[in-house]
């Protein structure tokens, strides 16, 4: 039996986990499932692609690939631009839409609004870029054998490394800084956090920035790994939600762990059952979870 699914699933799972961090934090703070979060991933991927395309155009020539990787410095810079702009998009959505509706105290209206925003964003992306897929690079990657039937491309290794760096940065941010601690406090109990004098609105804004930036990073990496499509983020939505619930709403390590579980399960399904059923895996895990342990691995009892 080949263990290839472990390598594919781990990377896919880390990307799901990166995206799920934003979902789980805004869910915990604002009590709503943001259906537009997937579109932040797509938006990020398209920004990164456009920026790296522009950088190449400015340089007048394609940027050289770095070592064995297909990823160029232009793509990395593009990813950085994507994180910044997507954080801005998240803030903008909050300012224009979610904040007003949240003020009315009806959280579920936020979900409908996020549903509308998701459709609008996805269609605007399709309007701007058409529905044909885009690629960061057309280079072929030669896979390296790791033994036990596992083969990985240099890009996959680079992306796993980049993701681990990002996770370390988040870990330091939420455990070592005042802002990070405030974020965790608000995610755990918004009312109590307000009582002890935390500026909840500022913390929520910071969370949108972080969630948006991480979604953009995940979207860009998914784009490097496979391709960029207007629907790519929407297709991630169910895995994101499942990962967030699996890990327990409001828990960052839970989101990552949940993402890895979903990623591994999806990759196992592709390898052993068939790629056509992959999209159902997240739903099946979600249903099992709701039946057995609705509060997730790390969640508090509801």
């Amino acid at each position: 039996m080949s263990l290839q699914f472990l390598a594919d699933g781990l990377l896919a799972g880390l990307l799901i986990g990166l995206g799920a961090i934003g979902v789980t934090l805004t869910y915990a703070m604002l009590r709503f499932a943001n259906f537009a979060h997937g579109e932040m991933m797509s938006f990020g991927a398209y920004v990164a692609w456009s920026a790296s395309f522009l950088l190449s155009a400015l340089a007048g020539t394609a940027w050289p690939a770095m070592g064995p990787f297909s990823i160029t410095a232009a793509v990395l810079l593009g990813g950085l631009a994507a994180m910044i702009l997507t954080a801005g998009l998240a803030l903008l959505l909050d300012r224009l839409l979610f904040r007003h509706l949240a003020g009315r105290g009806e959280a579920i209206t936020l979900v409908i609004a996020s549903f509308g925003a998701s459709m609008a964003l996805r269609s605007l992306i399709e309007f701007a870029f058409s529905s044909s897929p885009l690629y960061f690079s057309s280079d072929l990657q030669i896979a390296v054998r790791l033994g036990m039937g596992i083969r990985v491309t240099p890009d996959q290794l680079a992306l796993i490394g980049l993701t681990l760096c990002l996770l370390l940065a988040i870990h330091l941010l939420v455990t070592r800084t005042q802002a990070g601690r405030a974020m965790r406090a608000v995610a755990e109990n918004p009312t109590l956090a307000a009582v002890v004098g935390l500026d909840v609105r500022r913390v929520v804004g910071l969370t949108w920035v972080m969630g948006g930036a991480l979604a953009a990073a995940a979207g860009t990496m998914a784009g490097i790994l496979v391709q960029i499509r207007p629907n790519m983020g929407f297709d991630f939505l169910l895995p994101l939600f499942s990962a967030a619930i699996l890990g327990g709403i409001g828990s960052i390590p839970g989101a990552i762990l949940g993402g890895i579980v979903i990623g591994l399960a999806e990759a196992a399904c592709v390898q052993f059952v068939g790629a056509e059923w992959r999209a159902a895996v997240a739903f099946l895990i979600l249903v099992l979870l709701l039946l057995l342990r609705p509060r997730g691995f790390f969640g508090e009892a509801a």
Binding site: L97, T109, I112, A113, G116, A117, M119, A120, L121, L124
Partner: peptide, 24 residues
């Protein structure tokens, strides 16, 4: 036409958000 249809969906999504905001 494919792009214009995408814009059509975007406009409806925007309309939904506006109704929620202005005329719930």
């Amino acid at each position: 036409q494919a792009r214009a249809s995408a814009l059509q969906i975007a406009a409806i999504g925007l309309g939904l958000c506006l109704v929620l905001l202005l005329r719930p």
